[in-house]
Write a protein that binds this DNA or RNA. Sequence first.
DNA 1: CGATTACTTGACACCGGTCAAAGCCGGTGG
DNA 2: CCACCGGCTTTGACCGGTGTCAAGTAATCG
Lengths: 243, 243
Amino acid sequence: MQNPLILKLDHLCGLEPADQARLDFGPGRTVAAHHDILADGSQVSHTSLLISGIACRYKMMGGGRRAIVGFLLPGDFTNLLFADRQKLDFGVAALTPCEVADVSCATLQALAGGSSQLARALWTSTQMEQAVQRAWLANISQCTGDKRMAHLLCEIFLRLQLAGLTHENGCEFPLTQSDLADATGLSKVHVNRTLQELRSAELIVLKGKSLTVPNLDRLMNAGLFNPNYLHMDHEGRHLDSNE
Amino acid sequence: MQNPLILKLDHLCGLEPADQARLDFGPGRTVAAHHDILADGSQVSHTSLLISGIACRYKMMGGGRRAIVGFLLPGDFTNLLFADRQKLDFGVAALTPCEVADVSCATLQALAGGSSQLARALWTSTQMEQAVQRAWLANISQCTGDKRMAHLLCEIFLRLQLAGLTHENGCEFPLTQSDLADATGLSKVHVNRTLQELRSAELIVLKGKSLTVPNLDRLMNAGLFNPNYLHMDHEGRHLDSNE
DNA sequence: CGATTACTTGACACCGGTCAAAGCCGGTGG
DNA sequence: CCACCGGCTTTGACCGGTGTCAAGTAATCG
C-alpha cells in the first residue's frame, strides 16, 4: 500500500520521483483510539503525519465540551510548522487506532528548502485545508442540522475517496454520533434525529461502521455541497494536476 | 504611517531591514465600500494586500445569504497563493473604503524564494490565520449568541490593536450589525438584541462607528476568549518575537 | 430635506438543546 | 455458550434560544 501523503501531494501538484522518495518517514508509531496524538496547548517542535486511521483536531471548551474543528485522514499532517516550540491552540486526538510518523521541524525545513516543488505542494495542501475550514464555517453558521450533516458526510466521503479508502459508493465509517455532534455543533441527540432523516430520505445508508451513499449527487444537493473547494471533480479525481 | 504588513511580519518573526524594503508594493488602488476586491469563484493569478480599511472573506449561500468567514485588517492578504490561475472558493469584499495593492504570484514567489526569513514570516502569518479560523469554528459551533459576539469583538479589537489602530481602550468600528450577523451566523435582529445585552452588562460601549471596551478582561471572560491563538499577551504585544 | 440605509422593538413559531430512560450492540470472562 | 457490562444508539417530553415577520425610529448622505 502506498504512502498516502505521496498520493495526496502528487495528485495536488505532481511530484518528481526523487521528491516522492524524500517523503518516506519510516514505519511510525501506533496511537490507540481516544488517545491524544498531540495534547491541546502543548509546545511542540515536530509535526505528525497520519499514515492510517482517522483523527481530529479539537479544542476543549468550557464544561468539558469538545469542539472538533477538523478531521485528519491518512496523508494529513497534524500541524505544519517550521519554527520550533510553537504553542498549539488545539489538540489532535485519534478517533480510531492510528499509525503516525513524527517529523521534526528541521526535517520539514530541509524538505521544503531542498525542493521548491515539494514546498509548493505542502503550501497547496495548506491552502486546501483552509478552504475546508471556510466551508465548515459557512456551513455551520448558516445551515440547519440536516444540511450540516449532509455537507459533512459529503466532505468526509470525498476526502476518503481521494485517499483511496472507498469502494464503489461506500466506505468504512468508524466515527460515532458523538464525534459527528462535536464536529457539527449539534447535540448527540439531534445528530441521531438528523441521521434518521437522511436515512429515511434514502440519502445515506449508515449502519454499524459502514456508510453507503447510493446517490452522491443527491446528498451533495441536500448539503448544498460544492466540491470545487476540494480541487476535484465529481468522480473523485483531482483537478489542477500537472500531468 | 508605516506599512502595516511590515509591522505585522516584523512582530511575528522579526525582519531584516533588507526584507522590509522588499515589502513596499507602492501606493495601491482604492476600492469603495461594499464592492468586491476579489470576486467569489474567480480565477486569479495575484493576491491583494490590504493597506487600509476593513474587508471580509465571504461565501455566498443559497437564498442570497452571505457568510463572512473572516475579516481582513490592514496588513492582511486576501489570499496567499503561489500558483497561477487558482479558482477561489470565496470572495473578498470591502466593508469600508479600502486601499489595496495587487501582488502577482511571480512577485510573491520571488519574495519567498529570495529570503527564507520572509518565507517563514509569511508561513507563520498563515498559521495564525488558521488559528483564527479554528477559534471561529469552535466559537460558532458551541456558544450561544452573546458569547459568540463577545468573542468576535475581542478578536477584532485585539487584532486592531496589533495593527496599531486602537487608542486607549477604544477604536473605530465601522462594521454594521448586518456584517456582524453574517460573521456570527446570527440573524440581524438577534445581533441587535445581543449587542444590547453586552451594552447593559457594561462590557462594551458601541455607538455610531466607535467601540469602547471599558474592561477587556471582562469581555474576554464573557466570550471565553483565549488570546493565546493570536500569539500575543494581554497588553497587545506580540509574543514569540525574535528580539 | 427627502430618501436610503441602519438600528430598534415586539409577537410568535420552531429548531434544536436538555433530561431521562430504554434498547442495542460488541466485547469479556466465566 | 451464555451472562454481564460499558459504550453507543434510539425515543419521548419539554423548554429555551433564535429566526422570522412586521412596523417603527434613528442616522446618514446626496
